[in-house]
Amino acid sequence: MGNSVEWCTVVWQVAGENFGTKSDLATWGVALLSGFMGMGGIVVGQLTSTRTEKKSVRAAVLAEVEALHDLCMKRKYLEGFREDARHFRSPEGIIQQQRGEIYQNSIRASDFNLIYRANLSRLGGLSGTEAKLIVRFHQLLQGVLQDVSEGGILFEGSNDPKDYEEAADILEEAMDIAKVLMAQKKPWWRFPWRCGQNVDTATAGKSH
């Protein structure tokens, strides 16, 4: 706002006290045009800065989703839950159930989604579909981690195959969402310009 006030002062100084002649009008018009161009530059700069920030947030949040997906796959958490469920449905597992034997699963990952939490207030810059998928992914992953963290049913130990199947189903849904986000991830310059909002990755890029 200070820039526009200073610009107005300059205009009136240029116009002078004898404002009204043709030469005064021409001079004032030039000053006015220069002022509008200056203000336009400021507005464009702010819009560019905002869009750059949104692109950076989107890239960081999606990179975290991909990293968490790869970590879960490499450590075979999903396969482990499925295997434990199958085991406790097998004859050997049923005998263990009768003996009261249990399996315990524990994972310490309190800071697993630091980027997501740090940028929660900025998710509005993503498309509605993309933001919902990212939130859903982290909610599902958090649910699984609660089961395998202190106080969780799998942390304390269980021999009920349903407990492992439920954890596996939740984790599998999270991994499926991650795959959608990873598959739709494209460089920002391949998306058409949409002022104030990033492009919906569920629809953008299909025509390319």
Score class of each variant (00 low, 15 high):
A59S: 04
V30R: 01
D111Q: 09
F155Y: 08
V44D: 14
Y116F: 15
K55N: 01
I134D: 00
I42M: 12
Q46F: 08
K186Y: 07
D70H: 10
Y164D: 03
F81N: 00
I153Y: 10
A204N: 04
E79G: 02
E166T: 05
T50A: 10
S207W: 02
L126E: 00
G41S: 12
G125I: 04
V57W: 02
E172P: 12
V44A: 14
L141Y: 10
S90W: 12
R190V: 03
L32S: 11
I170N: 04
L114W: 06
A60H: 12
M39R: 12
K132N: 01
E172A: 14
Q139E: 10
D163S: 04
S4V: 14
T129E: 04
S121G: 11
H208E: 03
E101F: 07
T27R: 11
D111N: 06
A26V: 14
V14S: 09
G40F: 09
S34M: 12
Q97D: 10
S121K: 04
Q139I: 08
K185I: 06
V57Y: 00
E173L: 12
L120K: 11
G29N: 13
R86D: 15
R51L: 09
E6C: 14
F36D: 09
D176N: 14
L25E: 08
W188D: 02
D169H: 01
G2R: 11
K22G: 07
Q104P: 01
S121W: 08
G100E: 14
V144I: 11
D70P: 05
E173F: 05
A168I: 06
I102F: 01
K76E: 15
L133F: 07
K76R: 15
C195A: 08
R117W: 03
N105M: 13
E150I: 12
G152C: 07
G128E: 03
R58K: 11
A85I: 00
T203E: 02
V144A: 03
P192H: 14
L71P: 08
